[in-house]
Write a protein that binds this DNA or RNA. Structure first.
Lengths: 126, 126
DNA sequence: ATATGTGCAAAGCATTTGCGGAGAT
DNA sequence: ATCTCCGCAAATGCTTTGCACATAT
């Protein structure tokens, strides 16, 4: 099997995602991935991200300001959003078991997932 | 002091927000508020919400699908999003003290706020 | 007269989609 | 030939803004 053009594009996008320290904006992914694929377009980035999400390899993260970011789907973790530089950082671990979270819900509600977002000022900006 | 036209509009919008069981979409607020103010426009709703937020009386809530909702700014609580009907519910209480949340952060990060979003199926849809 | 608030329509932005073309089998 | 993927541009959907007018002081 030979190296296809499309594999190169997707690999560039995946590589950017995989190397990131936290979820990235599609625009940011485009900018970095263009270093490898000059002609890459934003629509392709969105399509690739959608596909990676469908395959369960990437996860969509909506931050407080409503902008969508993407990250490699690794184990469950939380996010920290810096109100100064707007970057989003991964925060490892989880507060509690899903079980105990579920106990805070009214009867009849089925819990399937959750996410925790913290806001403040990051070490770089403080 | 007499009742001004603007007070009526804003009061209608505020009334809708105050009576809601969870955060509402601007469109939803418009629909309900129109029952009192027939000529009310969407732009006015957005402007009123922006103002209420600036005054600290309303809070902006971004749900998982990225859509913006507004609610009356009451004590700290969490949110539950139904993946079926897409409604968002308030969930009272908080998991832990902010202190213990802060301990999960890397050194140098200053925590100012946080929010927890739960996803699943609500009692109505289950 | 000045200031504020409003509806409407236009402008802005982020995201998605349609389409013709390029690359691979 | 067929299929998939891509870049570009147009379309979409939510939110904000400009503008002219109405109401209040």
């Amino acid at each position: 099997m030979s190296t296809t053009r499309s594999t190169t594009q997707r690999e560039a996008i995946w590589g950017v995602l995989d190397a990131a320290v936290g979820p990235l904006l599609p625009e940011e992914i485009l900018t970095v991935a263009r270093r490898r694929c000059r002609s890459l377009g934003l629509a392709t980035v969105y399509r690739a991200l959608q596909r990676l999400e469908d395959e369960g390899r990437a996860a969509r993260v909506t931050s407080g300001n409503g902008r969508v970011r993407f990250e490699v789907a690794r184990g469950h973790h939380h996010h920290f959003e810096c109100r100064d530089c707007e970057r989003v950082y991964d925060v490892p671990g989880c507060l509690r078991s899903p079980r105990s979270l579920e106990r805070t819900l009214p009867a009849g509600f089925r819990l399937e997932a959750h996410d925790v977002r913290m806001q403040g000022v990051c070490a770089d900006c403080a």
